[in-house]
Design a protein around this nucleic acid. Sequence first.
DNA 1: ATTACTGCAAACAATTTGCAGCGAA
DNA 2: TTCGCTGCAAATTGTTTGCAGTAAT
Lengths: 147, 147
Amino acid sequence: MTAPFAAYLREHSLPVTAQRLAIAEVLLSSDRHLSAEEISRDLESRSIRAATATVYRTLDLLVTSGLVVERDFGEGFRRFEPARDIPQHEHLICASCGVVREFRDERLDRMTTLIAESNGFTRQGHRLEIRGLCADCLAHGAGERAR
Amino acid sequence: MTAPFAAYLREHSLPVTAQRLAIAEVLLSSDRHLSAEEISRDLESRSIRAATATVYRTLDLLVTSGLVVERDFGEGFRRFEPARDIPQHEHLICASCGVVREFRDERLDRMTTLIAESNGFTRQGHRLEIRGLCADCLAHGAGERAR
DNA sequence: ATTACTGCAAACAATTTGCAGCGAA
DNA sequence: TTCGCTGCAAATTGTTTGCAGTAAT
């Protein structure tokens, strides 16, 4: 899981350290959108120690390497997810429990390009978030991780 | 411009103070998406003094009153815009100069509702942002207010 | 008179930075 | 060895909160 990151580091003659690999491992093997704090906690639970600053510095590296993408769901902090192979996708966020579901819709690229053009802009990218209630939260009562 | 806010305050038996009116005036008469700091600076330039805390506390009031909406463009701080009468609109943001242009597209409501449903979610709302270069920045060289 | 507001400064949370010491290459 | 990394703590930034004093009702 961490091989591509190690490769990236070597290619750029940057030290391949235990902390960097551990952080990459946690994030790259996860299928969730993790915050810096969640990564720190995960490392702690695995009895791997890495200072907060190191986590942030490594996240920078992972983002510039292209292996990880940064997300901002307006929570007041950032989240990170493995880039995987999905070229562009959108997020469905449960307003109650916070679960994030990804989806892809081809129409959006075309649509946003047209909208941009009709406003005199040249499109570079877009971001769509849908908020709502997931099936679970709808079935059971109020959720927990609300915001 | 500040009349509806004064009305709101009176209806809720809350003091109508000079600071509150000044902050509402700055924001409600603006057609931009202002940050708390920009509002503070604007007040300063008009020689009106209001502490940062007061600006934030008044912004809370304006948002709960429904006269102002809060936005998060992932800049690390929030922006506020008068609610006006536009029920729902999206943002086109210039990646170079930061200018924000609003647009509306009816299809999005339907489209996002369907997408949510096909993923087992009940749609509550959505947010679409398109990033690109505005006509000006495209014509002239590199912009200034990049991020 | 009440009650809520205001400014100020301290408190906070997420993130960044400076620096001495440690560890890859 | 030589850089660059790491931990730690201090610094930053956007925002919130506690409190004594002040102003709106």
